[in-house]
Amino acid sequence: MKNKFIIIFFYIFFIEPSAAETNKLESKIFKSLRCIVCQGQSIAESNSDFAQTIKIVVRDKIDQGDNEKEIYEFLAEKYGEWIIYKPKFNYINSLLWFSPYIVLVFGGLLIFKYLKRRKQ
């Protein structure tokens, strides 16, 4: 009985949603692209002409079998990294991705230091 419970438990945890649904992928990509002619809107949100065109292009690319990453790379090449909402992980952006965690670790160590003082 117990074992069964554990199996069910892990089964739930490690299942990933079936990303195959094109519709989901499509709207995920639309949300991750900036409408560069608008003020702070994504392609999914924008009503602009530009957004309409990008939507068609993204749909075509998905139909051609391109994956998410390839689509982002294609658009970044044409419009610069400005168009992608999730910054690439590269040399320039490394601090962006790391520094929040540096703060987290540093803060933890600081609290730990105060806890340890007691024992001295």
Partner: peptide
């Protein structure tokens, strides 16, 4: 016609 080809040239406006 639908503007998609021009994306190849990074059309903006």
């Amino acid at each position: 016609k639908d503007g998609t080809k021009s994306i190849l040239f990074g059309v903006y406006g």
